[in-house]
Computed example of a mutant assay.
Amino acid sequence: MGARQLFLQFADAHGYTRVARIQNPYNLLNLDFEYGLAEMALRENVGLIVYSPLAMGMLTGKYFHGDRPAGSRLDLFGRFFRYSNKRAQDAASHTRRCFESMASIQYMAVLRSLSAALLSPAPS
């Protein structure tokens, strides 16, 4: 049993207000919430406030290929290494390629729809 569950039980037993939300990192590069807390949160009706949904900028493309723009978090605070290791870099690159592919497919579908509309005979 985790500390959060103990706190919930203590609150219930002594009439204290229960925890309503927890704040944990949760993004495409960090799914730890799914493995350790999602079931408890659902069972105990405790919501999640997502911390670091863009993986500290890694999922925006800011740090691709090891870039560290001046003034960025990774530039200013070297201790943030969770998303700057090779595994995270590779996962972010793969995620970016997936989103780019989806965007290309969507773009082509829009072009195809426009072409069909332009080439179809005008209603009489």
Rank of each mutant, 00 (worst) to 15 (best):
S104E: 15
R87T: 14
L8D: 02
D12Q: 05
M58D: 00
A3E: 07
L42Q: 09
D75R: 05
G57I: 00
M1K: 02
F99W: 06
M58N: 03
S101F: 06
G57N: 01
L59P: 00
I22A: 03
Q89H: 09
F33I: 06
Y26T: 04
F81P: 02
G15S: 01
V110C: 02
Y63G: 00
I49M: 04
L29Y: 02
Q106A: 11
L76T: 06
D75W: 05
A116W: 10
V19R: 01
L114E: 13
L111Q: 11
Y26I: 00
S120P: 00
S93L: 12
N30P: 05
M102E: 13
V46R: 10
G2E: 08
R82C: 03
R112V: 07
A55D: 02
R97H: 11
Y16D: 06
M56W: 06
R73H: 12
R43D: 09
D67L: 09
G66C: 11
M108L: 14
A41E: 00
N30F: 00
L48P: 09
S52Y: 03
F99H: 12
L59E: 03
P123E: 15
L74S: 11
P25C: 04
A109C: 14
S120R: 15
P123H: 13
Q5D: 07
M1Y: 01
G61Y: 03
A117P: 03
T17I: 07
H65K: 06
S113T: 12
L31Q: 08
F7R: 14
F10R: 13
Y35H: 08
A13L: 14
